[in-house]
């Protein structure tokens, strides 16, 4: 068997418990939504529960990877003894997390679709809305939740690498302080950078107008291909930096 496939299977086994736990929590939450909607006599309450469940998937990868990295910590010497490069080892975790995310999001999206079109009847609330609109908006949202969640997952991977390096070289407290510093100040610095004219010149290009119904997406009428390219580049840099740090600087 290909060594990476073997690693992928191992990561599946490591993450299975957490992913199942998250799925059970999702069903319990949706059950609570059904109960609340029934008690209040307002079917739209269930749709609100479903919408929150869909949006919460943005942090799914972060949660999945935090559990996976926490569990891996105990067997770090086994993980680092692998003949695979650290980038391949990390990729095995990311692929498994992404598959779990996709499954959970698919289930939630289907329930949300049923809640929106059958329980609440969105077409009655908004006569301009059509089935193609629903499919279009749904697909747009799902793709972006998948991308953002994966992106945050890479950010968490980078933070883990920083934590591993700093705790070994500077101590546990310093590791946490630096990790939290990067967690809070990193996005702030990036936000400042994204406000500059240079950023606009480099990455705000390739305008694509969205065909959405203005009722739903009045404030989000277009996207920039360049902006997606920027985040892809940033994700790649963070992933490679995390791989390099663990490969070259982490000791167990």
């Amino acid at each position: 068997m290909n060594p990476w496939l073997g690693q992928l299977k191992k990561e599946y086994r490591l993450g299975k418990g957490g992913a199942l736990g998250a799925l059970i929590a999702l069903f319990l939450y949706l059950g609570l939504g059904v109960y609340t909607a029934w008690r209040m006599g307002k079917p739209e309450t269930f749709f609100a529960f479903c919408s929150v469940a869909v949006m919460i998937h943005v942090v799914y990868m972060a949660g999945y990877l935090c559990v996976s990295y926490f569990l891996e910590h105990k067997t770090m010497h086994l993980w680092l003894q692998s003949p695979l490069s650290v980038s391949k080892l990390l990729l095995a975790k990311l692929v498994n997390g992404f598959a779990a995310l996709a499954l959970s999001l698919f289930i939630t999206s289907v329930v949300t679709l049923i809640a929106g079109t059958m329980v609440m009847d969105v077409f009655e609330l908004n006569p301009d809305m059509t089935w193609p609109d629903v499919i279009y908006i749904g697909t747009f949202l799902v793709i972006h939740i998948l991308l953002i969640s994966f992106y945050i997952g890479i950010g968490i991977t980078f933070l883990w690498a920083i934590y591993l390096v700093t705790t070994k070289t500077l101590g546990k407290i310093s590791g946490w302080v630096i990790g939290l510093g990067v967690f809070f100040f990193g996005p702030w610095i990036l936000a400042k950078w994204e406000d500059t004219k240079l950023f606009d010149a480099l990455f705000i290009w390739g305008k694509v107008n969205l065909k959405y119904n203005d009722f739903v997406y009045g404030i989000f009428k277009h996207v920039y291909v360049g902006y997606y390219f920027y985040h892809l580049l940033l994700a790649l840099i963070l992933f490679l930096a995390a791989s390099w740090l663990i490969e070259r600087k982490v000791e167990v």
């Binding site: 068997m1 060594p3 073997g6 690693q7 299977k9 086994r13 418990g17 086994l78 695979l84």
Partner: peptide
């Protein structure tokens, strides 16, 4: 890896 059986542990290392 505590989730593996003895046989699976051997299988994992054989794949690696």
């Amino acid at each position: 890896y505590s989730f593996y059986t003895v046989g699976e542990t051997i299988g994992y290392y054989a794949s690696l």
